[in-house]
Every structure is written in structure tokens, then in C-alpha cells.
């Protein structure tokens, strides 16, 4: 599904990712944990095709080299980024833009566009997934939403667009426990054999609810340790200093 080899990325001459490699198979859930400044958000941005990064290394998605693809081409190929800080867009309703987005993705896949009626039906079922009100989808994107509402809106969009690979950038940040549970429930219901997740997070907390198959520790722009879900607990217990100390020469 996703194969990253020796990814190097920087912004304005400052290198942030220093040779990161990661392979995600269909259906797998990978957690990437790391302290502040380890390159978590850069990784999310580079995967989604955000402009402004100098990138080298290999980025394969579904067997294709996506390094030169625009953000929309990546989305159309089935990649979805749940933002750490979802953007407020006054004047653009979630429902309206999502319908256009869905149809752009369907077009890229050679599928017929959905009409308004089909879209509303689809929306209704997906809204229920994250306990969102229909009214929220009619409002301007994220405008005046609470932190929890914004994150639920991300998962709602994810559910609507049915991506193959979901990259979640610190989705747990700023969430209280109730919102966290709703978000996790939404994500878990989307898990499947053909859909993979890369969950980027600072804390282990989210992983209590979305149980990963693999956990990686991102440190100083590369993955320094990988393991099963128990690695997250170990990190939580010992803190990131443990990794740093571990990396120090004896």
C-alpha cells in the first residue's frame, strides 16, 4: 500500500526527515509516535503532497511513484490526511465541497458522479458514524467548530471519501475523552482488509482505542525503533528520554 524508502525532507534549507523508511501493507494500522520536533507533522504534510518541502527518497503508493503527484492526485488515488489543525473556511459548506471532492475522486476512478439524493443518503449514514448533526455539514467548513467537532468532521470526511490509506496527524490532540471515543469508534468502523492507517501521535492514549498492528518511534527524522502495540505502552511508561538515552553511545 505505502512504501517509503529513505525519505529526506526539509523546509527552507532545514532538514527535518533524515532517511525515513516505512512499509504499510493493506489492512494494517501503523502508529508513528514521536516527541515534539521529531518530524511527525512534516511526514504527514509530505505524504499529502503539501507544497514547500524539499523532498527526496522514494514514495510509492499502491505500487506507483507518487513523489511528483499534486495533493489532489494523491487524494484521487486514495490517500487521505486527517489534519492536526483542520482549516476553517468561511463561505464553503462542508456538504457542498465534499460532494465536489467525492465526484472528483469518482471521476479519477472512472466512476459516475453521485447526484444530490445519493450524496445526501451517503452523508446521513456517515454522519451517524461520528455522531455529527446534519446541520454541521451544512455550515461553513469548521467555522466556529470546537476542537472535538473539527476532528469529528475530519473522520466524517474520511468516511465519505473512502480512502485506501488514512494518515491521521495527531487526531487525538485537543480531544476530551468522550470525543476521543467517538473519533476512535469512527476510525475502527472504517478498518478493513483493503484500508490502511498511519496514525501519527505524541501520546499512547489514542492507541488504547485504536489498537495498532505496528508501532514505530520517530526520532530526529527517522524511525529508530519498531515493534508491536506493546511498544506504545513501554514508551508511555518510560518516556521519549528512554529512546534518546538508548541512542546515546554507552
Amino acid at each position: 500500500m505505502l512504501d517509503i524508502q529513505n525519505l529526506v525532507a526539509g523546509v527552507e534549507g532545514k532538514q527535518i526527515l533524515n532517511g525515513l523508511s516505512l512499509r504499510v501493507k493493506p489492512g494494517e494500522v501503523h502508529a508513528i509516535m514521536g516527541p515534539n520536533g521529531s518530524g511527525k507533522s512534516t511526514l504527514a504534510g509530505v505524504l499529502a503532497g503539501k507544497e514547500g518541502y524539499e523532498v527526496s527518497g522514494s514514495l510509492m503508493f499502491d505500487g506507483k511513484d507518487m513523489a511528483e503527484w499534486s495533493p489532489e492526485e494523491r487524494a484521487q488515488a486514495g490517500l487521505f490526511l486527517a489534519f492536526q489543525y483542520p482549516v476553517e473556511i468561511p463561505g464553503v459548506s462542508t456538504a457542498n465541497f465534499l460532494k465536489e471532492a467525492l465526484n472528483a475522486i469518482r471521476k479519477a476512478r472512472g466512476e459516475e458522479p453521485v447526484d444530490s439524493k445519493q450524496f445526501l443518503q451517503l452523508m446521513k449514514s456517515k454522519l451517524a458514524l461520528v455522531e455529527m448533526d446534519k446541520e454541521m455539514a451544512r455550515r461553513s467548513v469548521n467555522e466556529g467548530f470546537s476542537g472535538g467537532e473539527k476532528k469529528r468532521n475530519e473522520i466524517f470526511q474520511m468516511a465519505m471519501l473512502e480512502p485506501k490509506l488514512c494518515v491521521m496527524d495527531e487526531t487525538d490532540s485537543g480531544l476530551d475523552i468522550d470525543a476521543l471515543k467517538i473519533v476512535a469508534r469512527g476510525v475502527n468502523s472504517l478498518r478493513g482488509e483493503q484500508r490502511s492507517f498511519v496514525i501519527i501521535t505524541h501520546y499512547q492514549r489514542l492507541l488504547d482505542y485504536i489498537v495498532p498492528d505496528h508501532v514505530h518511534v520517530l526520532y530526529d527524522g527517522r524511525i529508530v525503533k519498531s515493534g508491536g502495540k506493546e511498544l506504545a505502552l513501554e514508551l508511555e511508561e518510560k518516556g521519549y528520554d528512554w529512546i534518546r538515552d538508548d541512542k546515546q553511545p554507552a
Binding site: 499534486s70 487524494a75 463561505g91 464553503v92
Partner: peptide, 20 residues
């Protein structure tokens, strides 16, 4: 970037933001 990351082509996203 947000709109494009959802699959909207750049031109469409620009039009949508302008209209907004």
C-alpha cells in the same frame, strides 16, 4: 491545500474559495 487534499483539482478549489 485543505480542499486539494480532499481531491478537488486546484482550479476548482480556487474558484470555490473565491466564491466563498
Amino acid at each position: 491545500f485543505y480542499l486539494r487534499s480532499r481531491g478537488l483539482p486546484r482550479d476548482e478549489a480556487v474558484s470555490m474559495l473565491n466564491l466563498a
